[in-house]
Design a protein around this nucleic acid. Structure first.
Lengths: 203, 203
DNA sequence: GCGTCATGTTGACAATGTCAACTATTTTTC
DNA sequence: GAAAAATAGTTGACATTGTCAACATGACGC
């Protein structure tokens, strides 16, 4: 007896709110996300959320921010674990797409333009930049070791980003449904991407 | 006098609703789109819309459907005008990205996952398929003339689609803001894409 | 023990999507 | 050409939702 029923203070409501939001987004879609339902599911009042997020957009911004942080961590991890060379670049590409497939809810919020880039929180912009920068850093290293072409770095990074992002979107949105097709597309895309930017290719 | 003030029947309310929706989405964003405001702006009642669309999702589906039709038309036009060969392929890529930049509202709705692909209207799915098929057809032709690699056609088409889609997203979402950067990215991306899938490249 | 602050609750309100019932206009039919 | 049917639009109502203001509760330092 005396079991700690539901204490008035939740303990880590912020975390729980994010998790619940992610669960709902994943199963129902972003537009079916309602603050009241999140509260209800957590056994908490409909406005408890406002002690942790300014409003609904801020909640989504929180999800996106977290997503970019996770993405960056996984990109950097893949790069380092792969040895910071050519193979590591492939591993990084795989890590990117795997992140999207494994965390579709995060991914959709991150790129669904639910948060206006103009009025985006500073933290979100910073994390998004950080993830992109991880890719830029890798490309710079590959340029130094003459693995990839010596093109404008920003241009090249944006191109690579476009490819993996495009594949991730296709994979997530269920356009690619045959079993194994996602993996195959990922492999093929990275293969052709590499062929396109490797040193000595074209021109 | 006796001027035909506002006739009871609007004439082409469906068209006007789509246009007004597009205007609002373009300037305010999809999530700020409200049926009531659309009606108000058109000087029409808030529920007049329901004579032309089943509900809000149907309106968005209408926007997306129209977008895919326009996209397909422009892709096919670019392909034919370019002579159905290698240069035409580039023209098609440019047409794709230009469409996105010129019609961001359409584009966002088309790929914003506002309409569940499972419960998507038949017409929408058909138009989306049609646009993709335009790309597949072009690639098949290029394969026949040995301009591009002889890879699995679906795989290759999805890869190409990913690239142009990824670039289009970056361009639209204001991530690429420096003047001229969008054009430069488009050119570079198509250049590298071509290098990646042209016959004799890699492996 | 007490104030202070973070955290959570209740009541209220305006905005929104949508339905049902009704009205106005056009088109079809005899 | 009038009646009937179909088409297009309106008004009233309601449940849902995001959000605010005012209040309640618990933790924690002094």
């Amino acid at each position: 007896m005396g079991k700690p029923r539901r204490p008035y203070h939740h303990g880590n409501l912020r975390r729980a709110l994010l998790d619940e939001a992610l669960a709902t987004i994943g199963s129902e879609g972003v537009d079916r996300l309602t603050l009241r339902e999140i509260g209800a599911r957590l056994g908490v009042s409909r406005t408890a959320l406002y002690r942790h997020f300014a409003d609904k957009r801020a909640l989504l911004a929180g999800v996106a921010t977290e997503g970019f942080r996770m993405l960056r961590e996984q990109l950097v991890a893949a790069w380092k674990k792969g040895g910071c060379g050519g193979p590591a670049f492939l591993a990084m590409g795989v890590a990117y797409m795997r992140f999207a497939v494994a965390n579709p809810a995060h991914y959709r919020v991150m790129f669904g333009s639910f948060v206006d880039p103009k009025e985006a929180e500073f933290e979100l912009a910073a994390e998004a930049d950080g993830a992109f920068q991880a890719l830029v850093d890798a490309l710079v290293a590959l340029q130094r070791s003459a693995v990839v072409r010596d093109d404008d770095i920003l241009l090249m990074a944006r191109f690579v980003w476009s490819v993996v992002h495009g594949v991730a979107m296709l994979a997530i949105d269920g356009q690619v449904s045959e079993p194994g097709a996602t993996e195959a597309l990922m492999r093929y895309a990275l293969d052709r991407l590499q062929a396109g930017i490797e040193n000595g290719a074209g021109r």
